[in-house]
């Protein structure tokens, strides 16, 4: 019974991990940028929902939608200010540019919010499924994650701008020659990635307490999931997230919790070494 509780718990959180990772690998896949501000943006998502809930009195799920929209705009601004100039420079430049954004966000956030823990005090109760109790917030988050993934696929495969994004991701020079405004498309992709990160942060805020530094953990998890699912493969990210969630949920059943990260990161490095295209294969 215990085992199933762990399993379901992990599985449901895994959906949210998947959305966070999707934001990271979308940016990575399309523009070949590893976004080191990812964790900071997840944190912004958490605090966005917190502010909407605690200061404005909005429903947290409305807060998540607003955070998503704000995330899109924020991401596009970040791209324009911090990344566009170095988009063709070696990796180090984009890595450090996004890390600088991370420092700026965390720096301002720490000054304003301090590093005290916050909490979105909100619950939808739980439902009993056989022997296990499931938090409704987690069920909603999992359903929402599936909806977000579906919308992303619809956007990428059925809309003009989505097709542009895939074209730019395949071959930026060729896309430019075809008259696709690549700068705008890159900004849009970064915005989408940021939006996903923000939404993921918002959903996490409905489960757990958090501080301004909490995003870092999810950033590293997103890396793990990204290489697990294959870079630039949104569905792979979702599946990778679920796998990681289950793994984290079930592992404490077999070993001490403190050993979990050892296996987690060991696995991460092993996948990088032996299957860098991801367990599920990279897809554009």
């Amino acid at each position: 019974m215990d085992f199933f509780a762990f399993l379901i718990d992990g599985l449901l959180i895994g959906f949210v991990y998947g959305i966070a990772a999707m934001g990271l690998t979308l940016i990575w896949g399309v523009m070949n940028v590893i976004n080191l501000s990812h964790g900071a943006i997840i944190t912004l998502g958490m605090f966005g929902v917190y502010l909407a809930f605690a200061e404005l009195g909005l429903h947290p799920y409305l807060g998540i939608v607003l955070v998503g929209m704000a995330g899109l705009l924020t991401g596009m601004v970040i791209y324009a200010v911090a990344i566009h100039r170095v988009i063709n420079a070696p990796h180090l430049s984009t890595l450090l540019a996004t890390f600088a954004v991370n420092m700026i966000i965390i720096g301002i956030g720490t000054a304003y919010f301090t590093t005290n823990a916050r909490n979105v005090d909100f619950s939808l109760g739980s439902v009993k499924a056989g022997p296990v109790n499931i938090q409704v917030t987690r069920l909603v988050a999992a359903a929402f994650s599936v909806a977000v993934t579906g919308s992303l696929y619809f956007f990428l495969y059925r809309t003009k701008y989505g097709k542009y994004i895939r074209a730019v991701s395949n071959n930026r020079e060729a896309a430019e020659l075809m008259g696709i405004p690549s700068a705008f498309i890159l900004a849009l992709s970064f915005g989408l990635g940021t939006m996903l990160a923000g939404i993921a942060g918002g959903m996490i805020a409905t489960f757990f307490p958090f501080t301004i530094l909490s995003g870092g953990t999810y950033e590293v998890k997103s890396f793990v999931i990204g290489v697990l699912g294959g870079i630039g493969n949104p569905l792979g990210a979702l599946i990778g997230g679920i796998l990681l969630g289950i793994f984290e949920g079930v592992m404490p059943y077999f070993t001490e919790t403190s050993w979990v990260p050892v296996f987690e990161f060991g696995l991460f490095v092993a996948i990088l070494l032996f299957r860098p295209q991801g367990l599920l294969g990279a897809k554009k």
Partner: peptide, 18 residues
């Protein structure tokens, strides 16, 4: 805002004096 200022400087260096 020590961290933010350092971040801003880093960004300036990366963008303008790589």
């Amino acid at each position: 805002i020590q961290l933010a200022v350092a971040g801003l400087m880093l960004l300036g260096i990366i963008l303008f004096i790589p």
